[in-house]
Amino acid sequence: NIEDDHIFTGFDAYKKLLQTDVDIVILATPPGFRPEHFEAAINAKKHVFMEKPVAVDPVGCRRVMSAGEKAKQFGLAVVAGTQRRHARSYIETIKRIHDGAIGDVVAAYAYWCQGGLWVHEKRPEWSDMEWQIRNWLYFTWLSGDHIVEQHVHNIDVINWVMGTHPVRAFGMGGRQVRTAPKYGNIYDHFAIDFEYPNGVHMLSMCRQIDGCAHKVAEFVVGAKGKSNCSNRIWSDTEWRYQGPNPNPYVQEHVDLLASILKGEPQNETQNVAESTMTAIMGRESAYTGKVVTWDDMMKSNLSLAPKEYKFGPLPTPPVPMPGRPM
């Protein structure tokens, strides 16, 4: 049971929580709040588990990166909800890829294509702000759009395999099926061509439309073979991971606690922030119809946060239209 003096509500609830004697905080609000909450948690010298994505815009990503460096200085552990990095099957498969099992990677693919998710219709007693927070998936300022909120998992795996982030993105997307006002201002499909520093390209596809083919996967092709990144490698001989595979949603928390108890705090901030920024880079390419570079993102002043966190009127932002000023 949680005592009443440890239960807080409102936009400033996190400040009150951080004034208590808790050792670890879990950041699982809509992602638009993540940079502010993470920065405050690190300044309060708390260990952190934070859900992905860790931001919805470039300003937020850089804020998270900076706080992650401060966490290192404070000796704080930070683990993110990119649970594939805690799945033993992925860890062993990607280790083998890094050890040369398929040769140099020459192409990569990442997919999260599925049907629609939940949606909350607006109620008369809800203000615009309350409705958007309850229906947060469909507002870019809160979720980052589904390429950032969900597809970041697959993008993170390819970044892990490549050992770095892409340098540019050229993409497209749109809002073809989910067009009703209840779906806010996000898209329902994206297709992005990401290019890495060594010239290797990743095809990234994500879609949330009912009645279409489902595919949630990662795949890489090497000069000497190929792999699904998760448990299989095809080269001169086929290899399949057959060892124990604890639930990664549990293992990520086990790993966080173990790193704290060992005095060797794990810090995943930079990896998850770079993967989040990669997804944002792809989104912005699709939204604008332009090629967007990593340098563009690192210099961008784009912030999607409302001017004030206050319950009351908050117009739905327009749906981005490629080729038109935003």
Rank of each mutant, 00 (worst) to 15 (best):
A213R: 12
A213I: 00
H214C: 01
K215C: 02
K215Y: 00
K215F: 00
V216S: 13
V216N: 15
A217Q: 13
A217T: 11
A217W: 09
V221M: 08
V221P: 06
A223G: 07
A223E: 14
K224E: 04
G225T: 03
K226W: 08
S227R: 10
N228Y: 07
S230F: 13
I233S: 10
W234K: 13
S235T: 12
S235Q: 04
R240N: 12
Y241F: 13
Q242R: 14
G243W: 10
P244L: 05
P244Y: 08
P246S: 07
N247K: 10
N247S: 08
N247T: 02
N247A: 07
N247E: 02
P248M: 06
Y249G: 03
V250T: 08
V250P: 01
E252S: 12
L256N: 08
L257T: 04
A258G: 01
S259R: 04
I260S: 02
L261Y: 09
L261H: 12
G263K: 02
G263C: 06
G263L: 06
G263F: 03
P265L: 03
P265A: 09
P265M: 01
Q266S: 06
T269V: 15
Q270P: 01
N271R: 15
V272D: 05
A273E: 05
A273D: 06
A273L: 05
A273P: 01
E274L: 08
S275R: 04
S275L: 00
T276M: 06
T278P: 00
T278A: 05
A279I: 04
A279F: 10
A279N: 05
I280Q: 08
I280S: 10
G282P: 02
S285L: 04
A286M: 01
A286I: 00
Y287V: 03
T288V: 03
G289T: 09
V291E: 13
T293H: 11
W294D: 00
W294M: 01
D295K: 15
D296K: 01
D296L: 05
D296Y: 08
M298F: 12
M298R: 13
